Computed example of a mutant assay.
Amino acid sequence: MPRKRGPGTTDSDLLVINKVDIAPCARADIAMMRRDAARFRGNRPFVLTDCLSGHGMRAVADHLTSMFRGRPA
Score class of each variant (00 low, 15 high):
Arg3Ser: 11
Lys4Ala: 13
Lys4Leu: 10
Arg5Ala: 09
Arg5Lys: 09
Arg5Gln: 14
Gly6Asp: 07
Gly6Arg: 05
Gly6His: 09
Gly6Met: 01
Gly8Leu: 12
Thr10Gly: 00
Thr10Trp: 00
Thr10His: 09
Thr10Val: 14
Thr10Ala: 02
Ser12Phe: 11
Asp13Phe: 00
Asp13Thr: 13
Leu14Val: 04
Leu15Thr: 01
Leu15Asn: 05
Val16Cys: 02
Val16Phe: 08
Asn18Trp: 05
Asn18Pro: 06
Asn18Asp: 12
Asn18Ala: 09
Lys19Gly: 04
Lys19His: 13
Val20Gln: 14
Asp21Phe: 05
Asp21Tyr: 15
Ile22Lys: 13
Ile22Ala: 04
Pro24Gly: 10
Pro24Lys: 07
Cys25Thr: 06
Cys25Tyr: 14
Ala26Gly: 08
Ala26Phe: 15
Ala26Lys: 12
Ile30Ala: 15
Ile30Gly: 07
Ala31Thr: 01
Ala31His: 10
Met32Cys: 01
Met33Gln: 10
Met33Thr: 04
Arg35Tyr: 12
Ala37Glu: 00
Ala38Gly: 08
Arg39Ala: 15
Arg39Cys: 05
Arg39Ile: 08
Phe40Leu: 13
Phe40Gly: 02
Phe40Cys: 09
Phe40Ser: 06
Arg41Asn: 12
Asn43Asp: 15
Pro45Cys: 10
Phe46His: 08
Phe46Met: 02
Leu48Ser: 04
Leu48Lys: 06
Thr49Ile: 02
Cys51Lys: 03
Leu52Gln: 14
Leu52Asn: 06
Leu52Met: 10
Ser53Gly: 11
Gly54Asp: 02
His55Asn: 04
His55Lys: 12
His55Leu: 07
His55Ala: 03
Arg58Gly: 08
Arg58Trp: 06
Ala59Glu: 15
Val60Ser: 10
Val60Arg: 02
Val60Tyr: 01
Ala61Gly: 04
Asp62Leu: 11
Asp62Ile: 01
His63Tyr: 15
Leu64Phe: 04
Leu64Met: 07
Thr65Arg: 10
Thr65Ile: 13
Ser66Asp: 13
Ser66Thr: 11
Ser66Cys: 13
Met67His: 08
Met67Glu: 11
Phe68Gly: 02
Arg69Ser: 11
Arg69Ile: 09
Arg69Cys: 13
Arg69Ala: 10
Gly70Asp: 13
Pro72Gly: 05
Pro72Ile: 00
Pro72Lys: 05
Ala73Phe: 14
Ala73Thr: 05
Ala73Trp: 14
Ala73Ile: 01
